[in-house]
Amino acid sequence: MDTTHPDPHPHPHTHDHHAPHGGDGQAEILDLDAEVLAGHTAAITAWLPLRTDPHHIVDLGCGTGAGTFALLDRFPDAHVTAVDASAEHLRRLHTKACARGLRERVHTVQTDLDRADWPNLGTPDLVWASASMHHMTDPERTLRTVREILAPGGLFAVVELAGHPRFLPEDAPEERPGLEERVHAAADRLQGRHLPYRGAEWGPMLSAAGFTVEDERTLTVDIDGSGNEATGRYALGILRRIRTAVADELSPGDLTALDRLLDTEGPHSVLRRDDLTVRTRRTVWAARRP
């Protein structure tokens, strides 16, 4: 794994570089992300400016299926082609599909999305790319390829998070107030060097690729995590992942305080806090192939 650009979301086109604690650890973060942000994902799928309900959807960089299952719930007559580089993520997605009685509506494809020659993904009515486009080495080429495979009049939804979610109050922890912001600032500096399209303005890029951008919306995520065990585990997974990358960038005092939060057996563990929230923003661009 290249630990210089920690990201809680799957790297959709390189094999297993994104799992600092092994594939299962990354997959667990993705599953928790799906659980904690389920309501916001459902809100985005409900907002999509579709002319008719799609019958075939492609989920690019699908991870363990957060978008796939939200889309299947939203469009009960659709089937989804779920695309990712990670065989482990696709296995988990397939297992979930079987458990939910959705096996016949999901087809998985393992591929590197930075390839110039994609496998045949059919002619979808809707392409969904959540937290995956900023990973592309050549996103302009990816956008052109999506335009080519989309059915005429089809919709491309690009969803991006505004960085890693925040969890702690600003004055926490008591001995190192503002710790989380300093940790994220260090991560952002490192990630900016390796993921130049993180935080990109996708509207002009979509237009340049031949899409008509029909709408753009930013949703603020602010979820009270008190009493929600999944929020604590989500915070633990993401902060562990970031710590792997930024340890050398932090002061000794900040690193010690962060390690106290990550010590699941200690009294200061993030799992024991009752003041966690999930705070971030999601922006979605809806672009149509003319």
Rank of each mutant, 00 (worst) to 15 (best):
D222L: 13
L258T: 03
L236I: 03
R243E: 10
L236Y: 05
S269C: 07
T283F: 00
L150C: 12
A209Y: 10
L219E: 12
H184W: 06
E249G: 03
A208T: 12
G178E: 01
V284T: 12
R176K: 06
A162S: 11
R273A: 10
V278R: 00
Q191N: 10
E175K: 10
E181K: 05
E148R: 11
E160V: 06
E160W: 06
V213H: 09
D222K: 13
L190Y: 13
I223W: 08
S207Y: 04
G266V: 06
E214P: 06
A151I: 02
R233P: 07
P165F: 01
A186M: 00
E229G: 08
G203Q: 09
T212S: 14
V221M: 03
L250S: 02
T218C: 15
R273C: 07
W285T: 02
L179Q: 01
R241Q: 15
V183G: 05
G237A: 13
A185F: 13
T280C: 15
R176I: 02
P169T: 10
A230S: 10
R182L: 01
P267G: 14
R281K: 13
T256Y: 06
R272W: 03
R182S: 06
A162P: 00
V278Q: 05
E174V: 10
V183H: 13
D275N: 14
S251D: 08
D254L: 03
L250V: 07
P267N: 09
L250E: 09
L155Q: 05
D259K: 11
P252I: 00
L271D: 09
D248M: 12
V221E: 04
A162N: 08
D188Y: 01
P204L: 12
T212E: 13
P169M: 02
W285N: 05
T220G: 11
F167A: 05
V158D: 01
L255V: 02
A185Q: 15
D224V: 05
T280K: 01
D274G: 14
R241S: 04
P196A: 12
A235H: 04
R217F: 08
L219A: 15
V183R: 00
A287I: 01
A230D: 09
P196Y: 04
S207F: 09
Q191D: 07
A209K: 06
A208V: 07
L195F: 05
G192V: 01
L155N: 08
I242M: 03
R166V: 02
R279A: 12
E214N: 08
A186K: 03
T244Q: 11
V284L: 08
G266Y: 02
G237F: 04
D224N: 15
A286V: 00
G178M: 00
R182F: 11
P204R: 15
P165K: 08
P204M: 14
L161N: 02
R166W: 02
G192Y: 07
D259N: 14
E148S: 15
L219G: 01
G154H: 02
T231R: 10
E160T: 03
D224Q: 12
R217D: 05
A157F: 00
G225L: 01
L262A: 10
V278I: 10
E201S: 10
